[in-house]
Design a protein around this nucleic acid. Sequence first.
DNA 1: GTCTATACTCGGATAGAC
DNA 2: GTCTATCCGAGTATAGAC
Lengths: 211, 211
Amino acid sequence: MARRGAYAKGVAKREEILESALEVIAREGYRGASVKELAEAVGLSQAGLLHYFDSKDELFAAILRKRDEVDARRFGDLDADPSLDRIREGFVGIVRHNAEVPGLVQLFSRQAVEAGDPEHPAHAYFVERSAALRATIVAAIERRQEEGGLTDAVDPETLARVIQAVADGMQLQWLQDPGVDMAAAVDAVFVLLGVEKQVGPAGFEPTTSTV
Amino acid sequence: MARRGAYAKGVAKREEILESALEVIAREGYRGASVKELAEAVGLSQAGLLHYFDSKDELFAAILRKRDEVDARRFGDLDADPSLDRIREGFVGIVRHNAEVPGLVQLFSRQAVEAGDPEHPAHAYFVERSAALRATIVAAIERRQEEGGLTDAVDPETLARVIQAVADGMQLQWLQDPGVDMAAAVDAVFVLLGVEKQVGPAGFEPTTSTV
DNA sequence: GTCTATACTCGGATAGAC
DNA sequence: GTCTATCCGAGTATAGAC
């Protein structure tokens, strides 16, 4: 990386745009979030911003990737310790945090629907993200099953999909009624799985409760 | 109902429009489904169609209600026998059927996101539908819990939300990859709950099948 | 009551000047 | 690299024919 000056500047500007967009959407909600609005937030015209991204959809796909990058920094990488306890912690933590940024939840869900078309610029993002997450969960489930602490009535792959589905599905419910506790529902799945709260090596506090 | 001729005709036209729209979307996918396209499918101009609905969003909300009506006729009303077994049957059946009508799944999911705004014409639809479905599931869960056949580690309300979330969340996964088995994942939740497949008193056949 | 035609708005895309 | 100008498609609103 870090090539010529002009190129590096372009990359930096891109990052600046993405960070600004993330902030605007998180703060003011997705509400129409037009390219024009996002452009003005960084002091550019609509056409000026689109100089850095091929289209509106490309822009939003990049925003989602950026968000994952930021979240990973904030919540740590789940792959580090692929135990179900760790995944439970991570999942519930992220979900709880999402309740603070409605605009991003809306953006994510909306794009998830639109990106169903394989031609959509964000399609690869969702497929890859989903597969990576699922692989992590599957690994943790298999480990736990070997230890004998988890039912094998359902295969790990399906179980992982169920966990992902609950997280995504609760977002839809929450968009309708921000009063519902997404985190509690996600946590409940782990309770059903018999993943008991354990004081891990690091001594986690209870993540659920409240509300 | 059935007032004056002219009025009745308007109602009939509405129904005709909705049935046509449902068919077009189920068959050709949601893909942009503009008011214009739907209008032409019933031999109307765009403005002609919007004479029967206040706006595009009102139209789509009506389409979703119509769809529920059709599904209820086809799969029976879940409230009739509010047992978990029955709910399992009904849920899995509908989900399996949904895999045949991608356009409707896309329409539903998309509207679910957009209707987060309380001002959105479909907001009430989603809130009411969700609450009604949840009430049915909660009743069945409570009944089963009293019979002692179900964990009470998670409260019924949350459990019901989890079941709904899995169904909705699996749709999002399926939109990305139509190869995934939505029905299997939904069914898995009931397996986790220990709801064994039983031949109910009435001896239900799999409502699913045929597809 | 029901429709056609038309016109207005807005967001996104694109060409070309600087 | 960034702008202005322009175009296009979709949704909405309305005038008025039938």
